[in-house]
Simulated scan of single mutants.
Amino acid sequence: MVDWEDVRHFLAVAQSGTLSGAARNLKVDHATVSRRLAALETALDVRLVDRLPRSCRLTVTGRQVFERALEMEAGAHAIARLAKAAHAPLAGRVTLSAPPVLVTHLLADHLPRFRKEYPDIRLSLSAEGRVVSLSRREADVAVRFVQPDEASSVARKIGTMAFGLYAHRSYAHLSAPERWEFIAWDQTYADMPAQSWLFGIADDRPVACELTHSSEHLIAVRAGVGVAGLPCFIGERDRDLVRIGEDIPSFARDIWLMVHRDLRKAPAVRAVMEFVAATISEDQYLSIR
């Protein structure tokens, strides 16, 4: 009988292409991955991976086993989701993945309310920009700015995040648009729509600095570094900032709430989804109109 743990380690090697990469992804040491891979090859009596100096390459049989292993992984995750959905109502741990800007400037502020209403649910709130896989159980619930395309997930639009140009009210070039300098996103988010929108406005005017997250942009614009493109739900509430460039093109991102279809009726998961949807809809700058 094949050991699922051996198969899981083989999958990590196949997906990362190296033993060290698999070890990092699984949070184990290099020796454990090597031992598990060897155990699977011994149990099957076939070589699955060619160990090269800097990488691991699947053999012909290894590629065939890899396809079956993916099916095993999907089945294992499905079992775990069904078990989670059967847990006691309104209790347990629920993981929520959301963009950093919404976690830092909105959702975290409302956690006391959620805790008061659902004291037996442990909400694990992760601020991350990457698209997580619900089928792989990387999160139970996710909030994203793009409509998800996972066939096993269900999603609905819960809000719209509009952007505007903001500067500190004491910014030296506030009344001279031709002298504005801009605060842009760094290469981490170089391809995101907000960056294209901002560069379209800046045109040939200089970029003062590049920062990763909107929270850092907010600090920089408060310090008078330059002009920033901020979500309106942040910029409009800051008394030290003024909105500028009324004739600039409008820009907004849709906000999507998604969950795996196997978990959508689990009471604790539904409570988290309702909390997120209500928090977004109650905000005048994010609600759908």
Rank of each mutant, 00 (worst) to 15 (best):
H110D: 12
E150Y: 07
L230P: 08
K84I: 01
D29Q: 10
L82C: 06
A142D: 05
L286I: 06
A23C: 04
L58F: 08
A69R: 07
I219A: 15
T95Q: 12
S215Q: 14
Q147K: 14
V141I: 07
S124Q: 14
M192D: 09
A172R: 15
R237H: 09
I201Q: 04
V227S: 10
K27P: 00
V141W: 07
D254C: 02
D50K: 11
S214R: 00
L48Y: 08
S196D: 12
Q64G: 11
E246L: 04
L218E: 06
G159E: 09
E41I: 05
S34V: 05
T32A: 08
R35W: 06
A252G: 04
T95S: 15
V60S: 14
L134H: 05
R270S: 13
A86M: 04
R169K: 14
C56L: 04
Q15D: 14
Y118P: 00
D186S: 11
G21P: 04
S287V: 12
H110A: 15
V141K: 03
A142M: 11
T18H: 01
K265A: 13
L230N: 04
F10S: 02
S170C: 02
G200T: 09
A139E: 04
E181S: 15
R35P: 01
P112L: 07
Y166D: 03
G200S: 13
A14K: 02
D254I: 00
A266G: 02
S55G: 05
V131E: 10
Y171P: 01
A172H: 12
V33T: 02
R115H: 13
A184Q: 09
L211Y: 06
A208I: 09
R113D: 15
G245D: 03
Y285C: 08
L90Y: 13
V221E: 06
V94H: 06
L165C: 03
A208C: 12
L230H: 01
L48C: 10
E117V: 08
I280F: 09
E150K: 02
F10T: 05
S175V: 00
Y285F: 15
Q195T: 15
P231K: 06
D45S: 15
F275E: 07
F114W: 11
W256Y: 13
P100F: 10
G17I: 06
A83G: 00
T18W: 01
